[in-house]
Design a protein around this nucleic acid. Structure first.
Lengths: 331, 331
DNA sequence: ATGAAAGCGCTAACAT
DNA sequence: ATGTTAGCGCTTTCAT
């Protein structure tokens, strides 16, 4: 059914080689011939068979994107960024996520193994050695989207967690005048969480604010853990005036606790979050937080990957995407 | 670098045809031969070249998924459902969304045109005639995920908007005892919105509840339109006791208005929503709403599509996925 | 500037 | 049960 270059060749009275060249914008095709071929192709509603093209060229213009198991509200923005950029360069985006029936490793090998995919974007906190092996065995370029930027010998695009945490803490202290600030961290083995905590403590130190050890409480990035941490903070002899939660969900936990206790935000306790999830601007009071342009992260990762797929062999890139302070009404 | 059947054939001292057959689990291969071939394949770390395979078979085990421009928190769940199901049948999932640089039509043609994709899942409210043309021209099977189920001669998976709206309305009246219920609809040209409205009015009628015309107000599915509608309702001489918003965002708008006016939910006004967005369970009070298992929608659509790709030519299927009442504290 | 022909890795007749 | 061979649509030498 679908037209092939063979048919175009017949109609245009040229060889298939010429058609192929004309379609590829080869300079050695006489303009008139080219013109004719294009016309015929248009009439025949020709679409190159991408399977055949990729096959013969031993390359693929498909980008594989591997997501972790959880579904996150950020994913669709990320995918959007990837898709938009890859489309722009005539690439396609293929998606897999790991889940109970399939490990991350399987997901990756399946995608790469068959030559279906010419490059991979991985959304993972850290590269396991097994994954690294698979990645290198298949010689397919890849870019990691991660919280951790300083790792390994490959391209990484990450959120600038440190700067973001530093900035929002400095904001609390310098702009808002809080001197007693607490921090609900993420899990202590989570790289994002560690970096954010560093940003927090450094900002306090740089602004001459003393952080009491009991004002730093470890959470789990869940609302519940935010509630528990907030309870603890409020039960302290010396209460903090404000708290920076390492993500918005834990900040939400603080909201709930304050609501229950009849405490006013920001009057009795200033609250700040991290992520700018959809919910943040809809809470009452709206939550001051830090927003990363996740679509931008996807775009940058894709641009790098495509340049690699096209042969760029320069030094691995380590890109940190700046976050933006979203000042609202919670502190 | 990557091993081919040719190499396996050489090592195993058989022909490439035998290798191909063994790999395809052809019954006419002697078990020992098969065994040997499998071993060699394993040793060589063989992965079939999917590009070559799809190419020669003139088919593709790639499912294309076309999303609208907006990014929605549901998308990642939907994608998850699609990916999980397609993986299960050894299919792959490719994603495109329409955006400013690309119409839905272009997105679809690009995907199908090149034979890259063997089937398509379309997330659209309605099939334009141009799109229909493209779809038929390419003879690639497709499944629509839509609000509208009764349309056209093709497979559609949809949310059961009518039943869901009917049920939640009946719940308000029968379980909660409200007799004066209002409805903030979606845009009047939106099919989902129309169906939901029908469910609402039918449930009222069936339960002997009289709906005043001024209690049905058209919104735009946005928070702001929900606020405006709620203001209008509250300014009425005869106020409704409860309001069903056609989506959670507009219900959120009602929350804001009540908060501003010092009205208690559900004491002064009962509020119910539709969608069960992430936010719904985190509002205070938590929002009673209706939840559709969107991952399930993706799974069902994918199953149907794959059966079509495998040759199923039975009558077009019209599946409605039931929604579930999420009873919380807002009414 | 154009054509002829080889070949990519695989499948599927056809032959044995 | 296994081997031989043609050919899928395209790109790419190598000729002309």
């Amino acid at each position: 059914m679908a037209a092939t270059i063979k048919e175009i060749a017949k109609f245009a009275n040229v060889s298939i080689a010429t058609v192929s060249r004309a379609l590829a914008n080869d300079e050695k095709v006489k303009p008139e011939t080219r013109q004719l071929i294009m016309e015929v192709a248009g009439k025949l509603n020709y679409n190159p068979n991408l399977l055949a093209r990729n096959f013969v060229k031993k390359q693929s213009n498909i980008i594989g994107m591997v997501l972790p198991d959880i579904s996150d509200e950020f994913f669709s923005e990320l995918i959007k960024g990837v898709d938009e950029t890859s489309f722009h360069s005539n690439f396609f985006t293929m998606i897999t996520s790991s889940h109970e029936n399939r490990s991350l490793e399987t997901a990756v090998s399946t995608l790469m193994g068959g030559g279906l995919v010419g490059g991979i974007i991985l959304l993972i906190p850290r590269l396991s050695s097994k994954l690294k092996e698979i990645l290198h065995f298949n010689r397919v370029p890849y870019v990691i989207i991660s919280g951790d930027n300083d790792i390994g010998n490959y391209d990484v695009v990450s959120i600038d967690n440190y700067q973001a945490a530093y900035n929002i803490t400095a904001f609390l202290i310098r702009e808002k005048g809080y001197r007693k600030v607490a921090h609900i961290t993420g899990p202590s083995d989570n790289y994002d969480a560690i970096i954010r905590r560093n940003g927090f403590t450094d900002a306090c130190r740089d602004n001459g604010v003393d952080v009491k050890p009991e004002w730093i409480i470890e959470g789990k990035f869940t609302r519940k853990s935010g509630e528990e941490a907030c309870e603890r903070l409020l039960s302290l002899n010396e209460r903090p005036q404000a708290v920076l939660a390492a993500n918005d969900m834990m900040a939400l936990g603080c909201y709930n606790v304050c609501l229950n206790k009849g405490l006013k935000i920001p009057g009795d306790l200033g609250v700040a979050g991290f992520d700018d999830i959809f919910l943040a601007r809809h809470l009452s009071p709206s939550l001051t937080t830090v927003q990363v342009n996740i679509e931008e992260v996807g775009k940058i990762a894709t641009k790098i990957l495509i340049s690699r797929m096209l042969g760029d062999t320069s030094e691995p890139k380590k890109i940190k995407v700046a976050a933006q302070l979203k000042i609202r009404n919670s502190c």
